[in-house]
């Protein structure tokens, strides 16, 4: 039982991590919070529902969620961030993106209603499981875990090894000097939003597949929790967001197992406040974040 709960926690944690990566990616490059991110994650679930209803396979549904949410990310950047790039505008950008999220949420409710929408999965897939070390694991959960880990590892490689990654890091360090080196800052920021939102979309689709339905409140509940996780891991710190996601996922699963799930919810926020006050660079950080340095 305990092992199963821990595995559940890791699976959920990997989804948190996937969403938190998006928050932290945008924060790292722009020093701004994208409050539409949670709703984009929510939308990913509905894209998956619609795709599967139209006969798409699960991998195709994930891909479509990735593409659709990536495109939404570009829209958010254009509407809520392009004009508010100065440091003083971080509140304006946060509120504008929040309003963008509200519109998205309302449109989803108009299209699919306010009740959760079930996703039609083949029965065989739903019950498929493998046994490992005497414990049975659901294939769907394991597949989600693998997809999330692969995506995050790919992101890590892209940032660490590629020319694009170098540009992203340069813009994160200083947009002004990156522009002097001939980097197209706007293009880099667009790509960051594309990547962040695409990953949130996959997370949303994966959640819908795991739970069997898409629900419109997850942007507010899980999406915001991922924001807290991002802060716990250290704002702008990809590795911290990853570790923070897993940590909170497992913590919640264990709290649920031991019967204090309600408290776990507050726990995440209180923990975030604690981390921001005591260790603003994040729980796992070795280096200081930008704002803490200034």
């Amino acid at each position: 039982m305990l092992t199963e709960q821990i595995v559940n926690g890791i699976v959920m944690g990997s989804l948190y991590a996937l969403i938190a990566q998006g928050y932290t990616l945008v924060f790292g490059v722009l020093d701004k919070l994208n409050f539409a991110h949670g709703e984009i994650f929510m939308f990913g679930g509905y894209v998956a529902v619609a795709s599967v209803a139209m006969g798409a396979s699960i991998p195709l549904a994930l891909l479509l969620a990735l593409l659709a949410c990536g495109a939404l990310g570009l829209a958010v950047e254009l509407v809520s961030f392009r004009k508010f790039r100065s440091h003083d505008a971080h509140i304006t950008a946060a509120l504008s993106s929040f309003a963008f999220g509200l519109v998205l949420l309302d449109l989803v409710q108009k299209a699919w209603g306010t009740e959760p929408v079930a996703i039609e999965l083949p029965h065989a897939l739903r019950i498929a499981s493998v046994e490992f070390l005497g414990v049975r694991f659901s294939v769907v959960k394991l597949a989600i875990l693998v997809v999330a880990l692969v995506l995050m590892f790919a992101l890590h490689l892209a940032i660490a090894r590629t020319r694009l990654g170098r540009s992203i890091r340069a813009v994160a360090e200083s947009a002004t000097s990156a522009a002097l080196y001939g980097i197209n800052v706007t293009r880099v920021i667009q790509i960051v939003f594309l990547l962040a939102s695409a990953m949130a979309g996959v997370a949303g689709a994966a959640l819908a597949i795991r739970t069997g339905f898409a629900a419109n409140e997850v942007g507010f509940t899980l999406g915001l929790k991922a924001l807290a996780i991002m802060a716990i891991g250290g704002m702008g710190d990809l590795r911290g967001a990853f570790l923070g996601g897993l940590l909170i996922g497992v913590f919640e699963a264990l709290a649920f197992q031991w019967g204090f799930g309600q408290i776990a919810d507050t726990g995440v926020w209180l923990f975030m406040i604690f981390v921001l006050l005591v260790r603003p660079t994040g729980l796992f950080a070795a280096r200081a974040s930008k704002e803490a340095r200034a």
Partner: peptide, 13 residues
């Protein structure tokens, strides 16, 4: 933004 997050956390808690 750190203060924004802290105050969001206060409300959520």
């Amino acid at each position: 933004l750190y203060l924004i997050l802290v105050t969001v956390g206060i409300t959520a808690s």
